[in-house]
């Protein structure tokens, strides 16, 4: 619709992409040799606004266990909650944008 909606759409795309990676990390929490996957949120969002692609990120400061797996379930649980909140905020904003357009169409006085 406009620039703000487009940015919000990109933001929601990026959050769901990150949620995908978090789901993969949680599913593979017991897989030998699996390494935590994540993306650089800030850099990815900036590049997506310019029509770019998300940037992969090697997560620092994670302890690798004896089986070569470095998934930290607490970190993933935090990201799971964080992504859900970010997505809720963005979807509420998109909803209010749509509501505005709707009321303009219906000639409502707010």
């Amino acid at each position: 619709m406009d620039a703000v909606s487009t940015s919000l759409e990109r933001y929601m795309d990026l959050v769901s992409m990150r949620q995908k990676l978090v789901s993969s990390n949680i599913a593979n929490a017991d897989t030998p040799g699996y390494k935590t996957q994540d993306l650089d949120f800030q850099a990815s969002f900036r590049s997506m606004l310019d029509g770019g692609t998300p940037k992969e990120l090697a997560v620092p400061n994670l302890t690798t266990r004896n089986d070569g797996n470095n998934v930290d379930l607490d970190r993933e649980a935090r990201l799971l909650a964080e992504n859900a909140l970010r997505f809720n905020v963005a979807s509420s904003l998109v909803k209010s944008q749509i509501q505005q357009v709707k009321s303009a169409i219906k000639e409502e006085v707010s």
Binding site: Q19, V22, I26, A27, A77, A84, F87
Partner: peptide, 20 residues
């Protein structure tokens, strides 16, 4: 349980999108 939590978080996100 962790997988169930991930699934229900994603399910909520999908529900939010539908609510739009």
């Amino acid at each position: 349980q962790a997988n169930v939590a991930a699934m229900s978080a994603v399910k909520d996100m999908i529900q939010r999108s539908i609510d739009l």
